[in-house]
Design a protein around this nucleic acid. Structure first.
Lengths: 196, 196
DNA sequence: AGAATTCTGTAGCGTGCGATACAAAATGGC
DNA sequence: GCCATTTTGTATCGCACGCTACAGAATTCT
């Protein structure tokens, strides 16, 4: 019927994710994007709409690949309390291993673009609440199984853990060392252990 | 000797702080700044140098007025443990009261500009470490006074509190409600209380 | 008053931005 | 083989960006 696309939309989108992830929305130009994705500007607009639409799709892609996949994998592989600890440990490891110090695209977006774009702000809030939901779900399960003290309130504690994760992402982006990041997390995890 | 400045450099700088605080570095144009400050572009360059220099001075001003002043005031008015609780309570209140949801300029800068500007990154890290220092200092004092459990490690716990504050600032910028923000903070403060 | 110095407004520099017009190239259906 | 349709590269568009040249206004010193 018509000419075929000469590039893989999904792969190019992954590249766009990296660009927005590293530099943020404003600081990433359409030309930067097109060059990195290996396509022309026309193809970019043809395939994804405008810059904002591409950002929205990138954010969605990030949430799917870097958040939901991780949550699903950890919940499948670990018992509830261990899933929480593994989530935080993995985030610290990834933050330290990434030479670009990109942090978390959701956290970056929460500060960068959410305040100036109500629609994207709502989306970001939804994604962050999915993370909180992961924590709450697993706290509840662990508490029912007697692996977490009864005095721990799942809703409150899930918010605490979400805040801790966001804080870790912020500090990691400024080049914090492992010692500091683990120090941020450890007291929170200790609250899930039985009190001596 | 020469013509006098027709504007107050300090007051204008405060306006610049608000602009950068709300919109970030990239998204704030020199024209936006000059208009808001009530001066011409030439006067801005004459008085502050270029945009980056104005940002650096704004960040410094913010740290002085919104961080060091608060720390000094709270340490003068409260005993160590209460100073910590008051610091966090004040941040939550201010975050919720601000209709612009500006959050914390240090945290915003840590994500926005620090990763792309080593020098400013270093400055931001220094300011954040001043906050951590406030926490550590007061934890140590409270612990010596027997108001905080001996098992609390001041260095680790100060990092935890810094992370919690950063997390609160992130979530506040996305429009989080008081219930969530206080839920983030409460488990951390509970660690400073004696365990039943 | 006049000289010296600094500040201020206008006007514009070159550059990069997001986005698009247009024609050539490539594909599948008939 | 030709038509309809979509993709692609080139070549911009108008605009806003950070920044500056320049001349006139304002101030102090002599």
């Amino acid at each position: 019927m018509a000419r075929l696309k000469a590039f893989d939309e999904g792969r190019a989108l992954d590249v766009a994710v990296d660009c927005f992830w590293m530099r943020g929305y404003e600081a990433t130009s359409v030309r930067d994007l097109a060059d990195a994705m290996g396509i022309g500007g026309t193809s970019l607009y043809n395939a994804y709409g405008d810059k904002r639409a591409l950002f929205a799709r990138s954010l969605e892609r990030y949430a799917e690949r870097s958040m939901r996949d991780r949550i699903a994998r950890l919940e499948a592989a670990h018992k509830p309390k261990e899933a929480i600890a593994a989530f935080i440990a993995e985030i610290i490891d990834r933050s330290l291993k990434d030479p670009d110090r990109k942090g978390c695209m959701l956290v970056n977006s929460a500060l960068d673009v959410a305040p100036h774009d109500a629609e994207i702000g709502k989306v970001v809030r939804g994604y962050l609440d999915e993370i909180r939901g992961f924590f709450q779900r697993n706290i509840e399960a662990a508490r029912k199984a007697g692996q977490v003290p009864r005095r721990v309130d799942p809703e409150e504690m899930s918010g605490h853990l979400l805040g801790v994760v966001a804080g870790i992402r912020v500090l990691a982006r400024t080049g914090a060392k492992r010692r500091l990041l683990e120090g941020v997390a450890r007291p929170a995890l200790r609250l899930l252990e039985a009190t001596r």
